[in-house]
Design a protein around this nucleic acid. Structure first.
Lengths: 234, 234
DNA sequence: TATTATTGTCTCAACGTGAAACAATAGATT
DNA sequence: AATCTATTGTTTCACGTTGAGACAATAATA
């Protein structure tokens, strides 16, 4: 596979996405691992010459997760000189067997527009890109070191997610269509990083009139069965 | 004055700033008016090759307002194809007597990183740039039509400012060092676009323990004199 | 039938806010 | 000097929200 040609992309502009998922009670994000280097990075990409910015991000997410309809929110653009480290990209490309000219466009200074996405962990089919050995879920509390300023990007994403959690009622995007109140509470706790009071949480969620209550979920355990809920579509 | 050379700037990347001020009970923003065309636009600019993004924005704000220390917050990056209208910039440049080559870099597609700033209206010394007849304050409720998507940028700035107003306690940045409770309330009302209850507002502000109370302000009017307040520096 | 674990609901106290009353006071009027 | 007017600072009361805990309901087991 040859090096991508600059002609189809806009130079100096990239995006990075922080894709949140929820599994086994933990909040996780998607990370790529590049060939040989062992370096980890956020899934990102470039914008085509005639493509809307947000369409580029959606295209990249679809290629890696197989999902088309994704909850997506832009949260910050990173443009410090400190993130200009051409030797990082050069090393990654060379580890893939490419001969990289010194003036190759991917070695230029880039501004990265960062988005976070919320997806149902169960629905994704992960596909690495050509430069990567893997794309996989990593527990938000035990992340490996990330290249460039990607660690800072993750922290800012998490901060923004926390600030938006109540205001935008987005927690449900991390769960399947139907879920128990306990599962929803676990999502909120994983995002906020703190325990919440069961009764207050339930009362608050129900009083907001955003949930539909469905049938009970019988798990086989010897106790009262919880109801299943879904978010109202209207 | 010759056309700026691309060499010193990063192509495809611009910033726009929504500078809020408060005067005569009204919330205002700064707009440029370009020579001849009569077109209005947000004050913006480009990022130098080795300059941090935020430093570029501060540089532009200093050139136009004379202020160095400014409350500044990034809120969104605009990257739709719909904002790619090279004939707009071409018309502006030609109205300034420039001969514009078809491939001139300022006619390319640009991504604009938008910031809002809060400043004390009394402290600014306004200076137009070389392409503009004027830079002046415009009442947020009576803005002229703006070029490209600058109207949308203003609306998004205002929305973000409203969302951040209570959470970040930023209203004071629009006032002088010392102010009365009534003036602070007027700022909040102008931003939120609604009247607030005097007693609740006062109680809330005082209970947050963010204000220092100073001497009274005697205006000569025949009624009780209000105290002056300032935001705690700590 | 009793037990256990968990869920759904209710109660009460503490707190925050809207609405209104009340108290204080700088200058004008008499 | 006493009174009046307009505005500011404070207090009170009603009401809604939330934390903390009690209580009721129930699915499977002993």
């Amino acid at each position: 596979m040859p090096l991508p040609d600059l002609i189809q992309y806009i130079p100096h502009i990239a995006y990075d996405s922080v894709v949140f998922g929820f599994s086994k009670g933990k909040l996780k994000i998607l990370l790529m691992e590049y060939h040989d280097t062992g370096w980890h990075a956020l899934p990102g990409g470039f914008v085509e010459r005639t493509e809307n910015l947000e369409d580029a991000v959606k295209r990249g997410l679809f290629e890696r997760t197989g999902l088309h309809e994704i909850y997506l929110e832009q949260f910050h653009t990173f443009g410090d000189m400190a993130r200009f480290q051409p030797e990082v990209m050069k090393t990654i490309l060379e580890a893939n067997g490419h001969a990289v000219p010194d003036n190759y466009w991917m070695l230029d200074r880039f501004f990265s527009i960062a988005y976070y996405a919320l997806i149902d962990h169960e629905k994704v089919t992960l596909t690495p890109d050509s430069l990567s050995d893997s794309i996989a879920w990593y527990d938000i509390e035990h992340l490996p070191d990330l290249i460039l300023d990607h660690g800072k990007i993750v922290q800012k994403a998490l901060q923004t997610l926390r600030e938006n959690l109540d205001r935008k009622l987005i927690g449900g995007n991390l769960l399947p269509e139907r879920f128990t109140m306990n599962e929803l509470q676990a999502v909120y706790e994983a995002i906020m990083g703190e325990k919440l009071r069961r009764t207050s949480f339930q009362r608050k969620m129900l009083s907001m009139d955003i949930l539909d209550r469905h049938e009970k979920l019988f798990t086989g355990k010897s106790h009262k069965a919880p109801y299943l809920y879904s978010f109202k579509t209207s």
